[in-house]
Design a binder for these strands. Structure first.
Lengths: 106, 106
DNA sequence: TCAAACCTTGACCCTGGTGTCAAGGTCAAG
DNA sequence: CTTGACCTTGACACCAGGGTCAAGGTTTGA
């Protein structure tokens, strides 16, 4: 999607035709982005954490990371953990309800 | 929010004034709804799973549950688990990246 | 050469979840 | 009674993520 490009999530090289030329790594990233969007993350959060997600043919860079970036990543990590906790708690509630239902009908 | 009421997530009794009268249980539900919305769930999913989330002063009902409802809940439970897996995987990737950074700078 | 198939951009429209604002009804205090 | 604070509804506008469609350029193949 051009939307992702406009948001700075992916970059595309342009041929002399002005046609977009997606690298293999970019296609892998698109998969990751769709997965994360489907999981409820916003493009802002995805853009923040994308650099530390390994994708095929696109090694992670560890040098020259700003302290500001590190604190932002720590914050996103914690927010992800909170989000996971909320979802897990409610998933467990649904699961418990279902097992209770089965216990009563069994 | 009236939005939640329009979506069928909460109900409000009306006094003779036509003013909304939120019960204590409803206020608790609003908290849950906000939490789930913040975690990236849609109001449709929330409406589906709300009935099996216990809230203060509002016991869960186990009788007269349609088989259709049960399968819907099982589906939502599985979708929640998928979502949690995606988030946990990426959270771990961020965390691993951060520890690797610290290892290199330490 | 010429048409079909593809790409580009830009302009729209749509759905969800929110915020705000105006026009009116209701209530309590002065 | 009157003023101000609250509530109601409906109509907006907003942002995010996405889809579609027209107008124009490019490539490919007949």
């Amino acid at each position: 999607m051009r939307f992702y490009e406009a948001k700075g999530l992916i970059t595309s090289a342009r041929g002399p035709n002005n046609y977009r030329d997606y690298s293999e790594a970019t296609l892998g990233r698109v998969q990751q982005i769709r997965e994360l969007l489907g999981a409820g993350l916003s493009t802002q959060v995805i853009r923040a954490i994308l650099p530390c997600l390994d994708s095929p043919r696109d090694p992670i860079v560890f040098e020259g990371v700003l302290p500001e970036t590190v604190t932002a990543l720590e914050r996103e990590r914690d927010r992800l953990t909170e989000r996971i906790d909320v979802l897990a708690r409610n998933r467990d509630a649904v699961a418990d309800y279902l097992t209770e239902l089965q216990k009563r009908s069994g």
